[in-house]
């Protein structure tokens, strides 16, 4: 049976502003990603506006922000590609599923896979990295399943709830991703960007799947 999902990724837009701001207020966001809980709502809003602001078509952005959207829940998460270096063909990736009801490893894994396809196949990047706190086991396991290699263990590197924690640095090179895609060819075809686009086209035209 082919594996399918009713989620997709798309460019984040100004209309997503309030949704994303709501997610950033979530204590989980501040624990698992970053953010100072003392920041004012105005400061958070300004940060999101700068993230979602459209970049002129002719410029090469330093960051790309994607929304993980779904038929059932609407927008459920944010994927950011940050520190994009067009010289080194690299970026750092972060995923946050803000809608707690929609959190699942499968959803997150599919979103990461599609984003990696976007990075390697569309943006022509050579390397995708991720920095993940050691206690965020679910996240780093997804990256390992995607073929990423744990390259760094930064000991006692961040503080949460008064305790220091390790931080992991992951890296995935293009040949490694291509090898993974070839190894799991059948499953990856079902969740690929191409499959996602075909699903959206069917939804739009009402054609049967």
């Amino acid at each position: 049976m082919p594996f399918s999902t009713e989620t997709w990724i798309r460019r984040a837009d100004r209309e997503d502003l309030d949704t994303v701001i709501g997610w950033m207020d979530d204590p989980d966001f501040q624990r698992f990603l970053y953010g100072d809980p003392a920041r004012s709502p105005k400061q958070i809003r300004e940060q999101i506006v700068s993230m979602l602001g459209r970049t002129a078509g002719h410029t090469m952005p330093g960051g790309v922000y994607l929304i993980l959207d779904s038929k059932r829940h609407g927008p459920i998460g944010l994927i950011s590609l940050q520190n994009i270096s067009w010289r080194n063909r690299s970026c750092n990736i972060e995923l946050y599923i803000g809608n707690a009801a929609a959190r699942s490893r499968i959803t997150a894994a599919i979103a990461i896979y599609r984003t990696l396809e976007y990075c390697f196949d569309e943006l022509n990047l050579h390397r995708v990295g991720a920095i993940i706190y050691a206690f965020n086991t679910a996240s780093w396991r997804i990256f390992e399943k995607a073929g990423a290699v744990r390259e760094l263990t930064l000991r006692d590197h961040i503080v949460r709830d008064g305790q220091t924690h390790d931080m992991y640095g992951y890296g995935l090179l293009r040949p490694e991703f291509e090898a993974l895609r070839a190894r799991y060819q059948r499953q990856s075809e079902d969740v690929s960007l191409r499959a996602m686009i075909e699903y959206l086209a069917r939804e739009e035209t009402g054609a049967p799947s």
Binding site: N88, S90, H126, R127, G129, V149, R150, E151, L152, T153, L154, R155, G169, G171, L173
Partner: peptide, 8 residues
């Protein structure tokens, strides 16, 4: 603490 591969 580790080596980041092919970053530059």
């Amino acid at each position: 603490e580790g080596v980041q591969r092919e970053v530059f």
